[in-house]
Design a protein around this nucleic acid. Structure first.
Length: 586
RNA sequence: GCGCCUAUAGCUCAGGGGAUAGAGCGUUGGUCUCCGGAACCAAGCGCCCAGGUUCGAAUCCUGGUAGGCGCGCCA
């Protein structure tokens, strides 16, 4: 028998194959147990047929359901009859009730058993709950953030940074070893332009005072001037070539711009709580380009076209990949090829992920095809993970036109607002400053991660600074509320799972059993928003329970607190994966 | 012109072949003897168009329409 995880549904394929139901080494996932139980009870009745197990949207139809339409033809019976017959056959200690409703078999889990099982698992595994070892520790390189030197860290860079960071956490949760690489944009023609601009209009002292903003002004001025003086563009390219050839003056200025920029970037990475395993910018590959050209040349792939060297990709129905410009300087594709080779040699990755905007899709396709043409089969493990743009008033932000929203300003504003709200609601909180930071920055990160990555985001302060509803602060609040209850019960820590039979708790418990599959799915889809959505649902179910049921000083206090404890652990773990902190009070 | 992406509620989005399409924001009303109201409950409003595949389509396919992005010396 074969078991596939498939968009929240499980298909059982009878026949040969194998069946894995141990996870994390030892523990049995509830859904896997359900599938196993159904397999056992149905195998004598449905040989050679595929079974679909789904979760009904409407809870009155049970916890799992099996639609019987597809067997009607081969069994020559109506789906209703089939459901009727099979419903009586399914008997297992995991299920409290199995009913046939029309053409569906509805399966109800035994609440006593499942609640004890799942809370036991959470209590014993803590933050490891939901993890699996699929990756077997193999390396996954993740290319993320990659801001451009001498340009401000904008809201646009936030996306790559937080999406990449969350995907790295998901890789780890699924048993891989993530390697976060910040591939700084510290090379390219833009530096030729910047050097030209600085030499023409720059002033050392003023740049020293406010490096990024002055350099940005120079960059903008360059692009204004180039409108009327197109020869400036040629000069920019000429200076980049000089930089590449090691001209001391160009080199010195480049290094200076780079150092100043890094200082600013790391102030922001500290705020965001993101760190990197390697910071190897494009410049790092400057001396690794010749090899790429040699390899491509030795395989006879290079062709001269308008004075430039290209690899044609006509056979793949793709525009050619430009390898060397007509002035002899390299271009980003060459650097990305060198980078790919380096990463394969250095990290022997199982997968190599590139969290880069969707506007670069064609570029990555060309790079992969070039590698494929050169016979590097591992290019199949390279995945471009695209994401949509951060827009402003529906338009693309543009550094050149000076139309950018600075991330640091947004983070500070969010932190200030959080501080203000804390002062109103919880004036006696001890570490106000720190918690305000966690909430404000958490709000900004969550706002970015809660929707699927490829959607464009129209930047709005109003949304970013909303702390109600589907937001990071809502999750943090729910988590803090849990800890408040645990504190009031004398820092309650359950030693064992509890059976929780009450109807009001079932949504929450049932949802807890889904975490394992969500962790897998979010990783397979490289989709942190699945974790964000899951956490929001969990918080909503729990808050609803909280509103209905008295927890402290109730007869079932310990069992209920055990659920509170479990919810706190899972929300905290979701937020951790997303790169957001979970203060215990706020 | 060609390629890729997107189209679900007033707004932002879930839902990737199954039963009555769900959340949040905003609006209106309620919970207010409240274990943290950054909460809970309720009302209201919806699958771009046309074909096709299927027992069954928001979901898959084809063709439109609208918007976004990209298409060699920028990254």
């Amino acid at each position: 028998m074969q078991l596939e995880w498939y968009h929240g549904k499980t298909r059982l394929l009878y026949g040969d194959g194998f069946f894995i139901f141990y996870l994390g080494g030892m523990k049995l996932d509830i859904k896997t147990m359900v599938v196993q139980a159904l397999e056992q009870t149905l195998k004598d009745h449905l040989t050679g047929i595929e079974i679909t197990v789904e979760r009904p949207k409407n809870p009155t139809f049970g916890d799992y359901a099996i639609p019987c339409f597809s067997w009607a033809k081969s069994l020559k019976k109506s789906p209703q009859d089939i459901a009727q017959n099979l419903a009586t056959v399914i008997k297992h200690s995991l299920f409290s009730k199995v009913t046939a409703v029309g053409p569906y078999i509805n399966v109800f889990l035994d609440k006593t058993y499942v609640s004890k099982k799942i809370t036991n698992q959470i209590i014993s595994s803590k933050e490891k709950f939901g993890s699996n070892s699929d990756g077997q520790k193999s390396n996954v390189t993740i290319d993320l953030s990659a801001p451009n030197i001498a340009k401000p860290f904008s809201m646009g860079h936030l996306r790559s940074t937080v999406i990449g960071n969350a995907i790295a956490n998901l890789a780890e949760k699924n048993g891989y070893t993530p390697i976060r690489i910040n591939h700084l944009g510290d090379w390219g023609t833009q530096f030729g332009k910047l050097i030209v601009a600085y030499l023409k209009w720059g002033n050392e002292e003023r740049v020293k005072e406010q490096p990024i903003s002055k350099l940005l002004s120079l960059y903008i001025k360059f692009h204004d001037e180039v409108e009327n003086h197109p020869e400036l563009a040629d000069e920019g390219r000429r200076f980049f070539k000089m930089l590449e050839d090691g001209d001391p003056q160009a080199r010195h200025l480049w290094n200076w711009f780079r150092e100043e920029s890094l200082k600013e970037f790391f102030r922001i990475y500290n705020l965001l709580g993101v760190s990197f395993d390697h910071i190897q910018g494009e410049a790092f590959y400057n001396d690794k380009m010749d090899e790429v050209i040699e390899i491509l040349n030795s395989k006879g792939l290079l062709e001269l076209s308008d004075g430039a060297l290209v690899v044609t990709l006509d056979e793949y129905d793709s525009p050619p990949c430009l390898i060397q410009k007509s002035d002899g300087a390299t271009i980003y594709a060459t650097r990305d090829l060198a980078t790919a080779l380096f990463r394969k040699r250095n990290y022997d990755f199982a997968r190599s992920l590139y969290v880069v905007g969707s506007e670069q899709s064609l570029h990555f396709k060309q790079v992969k095809l070039t590698l494929q043409k050169a016979g590097f089969e591992w290019e199949r493990d390279m995945v471009h993970i695209p994401f949509g743009m951060m827009l402003q008033d529906g338009k693309k932000m543009s550094t050149r036109k000076g139309r950018v929203v600075l991330l640091e300003e947004v983070l500070n504003e969010a932190t200030d607002l959080a501080h203000q709200i804390i002062s109103e609601k919880n004036p006696n909180l001890e570490n106000k400053e720190e918690v305000a930071k966690q909430i404000g920055i958490g709000a900004v990160i969550f706002q970015d991660l809660k929707n699927f990555r490829t959607n464009d985001i129209d930047f709005s302060f109003e949304q970013m600074l909303n702390f109600d509803g589907e937001t990071g602060p809502y999750l943090q609040y729910t988590h803090a509320r849990c800890h408040s209850l645990l504190r009031k019960a004398g820092c309650f820590i359950p030693k064992t799972g509890y059976s929780i039979r009450e109807e009001e708790a079932w949504h929450t418990i049932s949802h807890l059993t889904r975490f394992y599959e969500v962790v897998k799915q979010a990783w397979e889809d490289y989709d942190p928003s699945k974790i964000a959505r899951y956490a929001l649902d969990l918080a909503r179910y729990f808050n609803s329970y909280y509103a209905k049921v008295r927890i402290l000083d109730s007869e079932d206090q310990d069992a209920r607190l055990c659920l509170v404890y479990s919810v706190a652990i899972v929300i905290e773990e979701c937020l951790r994966i997303l790169g957001i902190q979970s203060p215990k009070s706020m």
